[in-house]
Design a protein around this nucleic acid. Sequence first.
DNA 1: GTCTATATATGGATAGAC
DNA 2: GTCTATCCATATATAGAC
Lengths: 187, 187
Amino acid sequence: MSETGDSRRTDTRARILTVALRLFADRGYANTSLREIAEELGVTKAALYFHYKTKEDIVSGILRDYMDGVHRLLDECDEQGATLAAREKLLRDFAALQAHWGGDLTKLIRQNYTEVVNLPVGREVKESHHRLIDVLAGPAPTVLGRTRAVAAMAALQSAAMHFEDVDEAVRRETALVVALEVLRGST
Amino acid sequence: MSETGDSRRTDTRARILTVALRLFADRGYANTSLREIAEELGVTKAALYFHYKTKEDIVSGILRDYMDGVHRLLDECDEQGATLAAREKLLRDFAALQAHWGGDLTKLIRQNYTEVVNLPVGREVKESHHRLIDVLAGPAPTVLGRTRAVAAMAALQSAAMHFEDVDEAVRRETALVVALEVLRGST
DNA sequence: GTCTATATATGGATAGAC
DNA sequence: GTCTATCCATATATAGAC
């Protein structure tokens, strides 16, 4: 419960990322001005620049935090073989990671992909997702197998953005069920 | 082979949409300036404004053309019942429509969703896609059924954007196979 | 139908006080 | 750490000649 040591350095830095993520997901990265982010936080633009040198640094900060989680998944996975069980575990872990971040992170990446991949950390996101798909496709993958892997990922991501009338836990569990079906295939 | 009557009214109007679609898909809508579109066409910005009153009119023109095709699909479909065969036909037809438009249209919509849905015709796109999903989910849909419908659509769209190393025809056929598997389900 | 200006707005980013 | 004031680049859009 106590502060973490250096603590009171200001949580503004973290709050900026939280607010920015929500706005970027809602209105789009290019259409969200620093003025809007600042207003939402109750400060001025100049205050943001004290914490982050550029607008790109802000979105990069968000993606960097997300990447830490993704790298952990992939590292764990490489140690094991590429058995079906291991691949299904990877998919489950990725679903859990997404659930932890919420729909906004997925929206940010998908609905601002062109901008995201122009960032250094964005290319990392792209590469790690591709790596995820390669592992999910298993050894000696066919086109069909690779397509199933992509579709499984897409199923998870799409479900994170549809059906706002359904309880989130149910939504995510159902998405995982379908994603696992897709990955396994019916052939 | 002859001109279509009023013909020589300039095909610049159509060429603008073609070039704009490619650039919007590549660099993003907000990051593509009218200057870039004009340069690519070999004209000036002012020339664009002769054909389209605003930048939004340009992207709306693209989406309007696409919507014509989508509405045709839905109209055909409503006449029939919602049998499994009819729903599978709908998915196949949608895949064909996407193939006709190419990956750029899908990218434009997915990677610029926040901007797109702020346009009148963009809301039409959103609504018709939702309608598509509802029909695909069949009568008395469960959460699982709806999730499968979304996942089937996502499978088609994702495959349109991945695997550029694979022949496009093969890619699309495979995507359709997977999408049909997903829609049918394995339960 | 297309061009050369130009009006006008807005956003990212910086300087310097407090 | 935050503010006020300002610079500067770029973008949409318009006016008017050819």
